[in-house]
């Protein structure tokens, strides 16, 4: 705690300054005088794009101590010019939502509740099931003997908010695996 000098008392400041009624600068606390927006005190800011609709508004993401502390519009964007709709404006809450899950959850067959499972084990389990489902649903040929070379045991849905790079790997992997039942929101 800094030494508080007699001269700092608001009353004294009132008398000494032109703000004799104490309605302006004379009553400002130190905190008020040192006020700075967290956009200026952030460790870094990166440019991103809103994840909601397809207008693709530019966003500025401010990070402090490894956490996202503010997301607002990017004035540099020629499309959005710094503006955001309520959903885009709520992006920080999307990232930091109280209901956001950060741990993997697993539901066993017939179970009534979730249980925790470590991520590595889960991915292994999924890989095993992927291979088994692929085999079980495999079709070499159709009823006329024409080649199909595919599996109908696996399906996928989603992708409208995924990156192009992600969709590319998904399509690549699933197609190589012979899984054709891949869909996303474009058709819904």
């Amino acid at each position: 705690m800094a030494r508080f000098s007699f001269l700092e008392w608001p009353v004294i400041r009132q008398l000494r300054s032109s703000d004799s009624l104490g309605r302006g600068e004379a009553v400002t606390s130190q905190r008020t005088r040192e006020i700075a927006p967290r956009t200026a005190t952030a460790d870094r800011v990166v440019q991103s794009v809103c994840p909601y609709c397809a207008v693709g508004c530019g966003q500025r993401v401010f990070v402090k101590d490894g956490k996202v502390v503010q997301i607002e519009g990017d004035p540099d964007s020629p499309i959005s010019r710094g503006r955001l709709c309520p959903k885009g404006a709520a992006s920080e809450q999307l990232v930091n939502a109280p209901g956001r899950q950060t741990r993997l959850l697993y539901r066993a067959p017939r179970a009534t509740e979730w249980q925790h499972l470590d991520l590595d084990t889960a991915i292994d389990m999924i890989a095993d099931r992927f291979i088994a489902a692929r085999r079980r649903g495999w079709q070499d040929t159709d009823e006329h003997g024409r080649r199909l070379r595919r599996t109908m045991g696996i399906a996928a849905l989603g992708g409208a908010t995924l990156d192009n790079e992600e969709n590319y790997l998904i399509k690549k992997l699933f197609t190589a695996a012979g899984a054709v039942q891949i869909e996303n929101q474009a058709r819904i």
Partner: peptide, 30 residues
């Protein structure tokens, strides 16, 4: 059997979105 896998949000990964005017915009990771 249900696996719920928590996903990364758009600021936790880098990549491109293509918006409705066929414009690709890169998102940097925050």
């Amino acid at each position: 059997e249900v696996f719920f896998m928590p996903a990364a949000t758009h600021v936790e990964k880098a990549g491109t979105f293509t918006q409705t005017q066929r414009l690709l915009q890169w998102r940097h990771q925050a």
